[in-house]
């Protein structure tokens, strides 16, 4: 399938391994990525906080650019926060022809126009709804056997449920668990999987922010998780980059690797930890890397050494 691909800013800035791993994984899943190089940041909710019209216009511009990608089945992002911020704008744009016309006027000078009803999906949704779990399962080369993975959704991709299209037919708030299991891993249940990582208040209330991250990491650690997986690079920043600071705030020694979703998928599809940029994390994903080498070792022995 072909997608108009919106990688977001952070996945090319502070978490380059996210965009990198997505590029590695896409061809294995038969996804053709057409990057939306001309688009700008979604605003991550902050621009909307400053000016709703500005956020709606900038995102309408991105949607309009995506709608120009010939042959694309849909628009895809790899960042929950992008999904949430874009979804919020799309909800307003799609709700009213009059409002949409007003915003489109802001795009008119460059001949761009957003037409209501773009399909914009996070990679997680694409995995389950477009590629399909059965199909995904058949592509697995190195099942995540015995790897205990804690899903960390964050906020933007699970709330509000109606805007995000979460319902009985599309239980999108369970997809991470489904993907983990499909890849052969074991889902670890812990309290924080759908709570806030704390990133949005890191500059305003650092204590509170780190306490959120630290609590969830400690909960996952107590539940014997080998690692967490998240579809959001901002969550990744607070959970991984800030982990050395979060531990002391909650009085715990934390050692919890946090994987980006494409990295987890990539591991199961046979890519090496290095190819997936796991070495770029602040918290060494030792448990994950050890696991993958032991599996490779085992597979290698069985298959006569590849």
């Amino acid at each position: 399938m072909k997608v108009a691909y919106w990688p977001g800013c952070v996945s090319r800035g502070f978490t380059p391994e996210l965009h990198g791993s997505m590029e590695k994984v896409a061809p294995l899943l038969d996804i053709e990525l057409v990057p939306l190089d001309r688009a700008c940041c979604t605003g991550a909710g902050v621009i909307a906080e400053h000016s709703q019209e500005l956020a709606d216009s900038l995102n309408a511009r991105t949607f309009a650019l995506a709608q120009q990608v010939a042959g694309a089945d849909l628009m895809m992002n790899i960042c929950s926060t992008c999904q949430g911020a874009q979804g919020e704008c799309q909800e307003r744009l799609d709700a009213s022809a009059e409002y949409r016309a007003h915003i489109n006027e802001n795009l008119a000078p460059e001949g761009l126009e957003y037409q209501a009803g773009i399909a914009n999906k996070n990679f997680l949704w694409v995995l389950v709804e477009e590629i399909g779990l059965d199909n995904l399962k058949s592509m697995v080369k190195r099942p995540l056997t015995d790897l205990r993975v804690g899903p960390f959704y964050g906020c933007y991709i699970v709330r509000p449920t109606d805007r995000l299209g979460i319902n009985a037919e599309n239980p999108r708030d369970t997809y991470l668990e489904q993907v983990i299991e499909t890849l052969g891993g074991t889902t670890v249940e812990y309290a924080g999987s759908q709570k806030c990582c704390g990133f949005p208040v890191i500059t305003m209330n650092k204590q509170a922010s780190l306490k959120q991250a630290g609590t969830h990491l400690a909960d996952a650690q107590d539940a014997d998780a080998d690692c967490l997986v998240t579809p959001c690079p901002l969550c990744h920043l607070n959970l991984d980059l800030q982990q050395p600071l979060a531990g002391p705030v909650v009085g715990r020694s934390l050692q919890m690797p946090v994987l980006h979703l494409p990295q987890l998928v990539g591991l199961a599809l046979g890519l090496s930890p290095k190819e997936l940029g796991l070495n770029k994390h602040v918290v060494k994903p030792t448990a994950v890397v050890d696991w993958s080498t032991s599996v490779v070792g085992a597979v290698g022995a069985g298959a006569g050494g590849w």
Binding site: G45, G84, Y156, R159, P200, V201, M204, N205, A208, S209
Partner: peptide
């Protein structure tokens, strides 16, 4: 500014 934007 202490709201963490969690939609809860």
């Amino acid at each position: 500014y202490d709201c963490t934007h969690c939609f809860k």
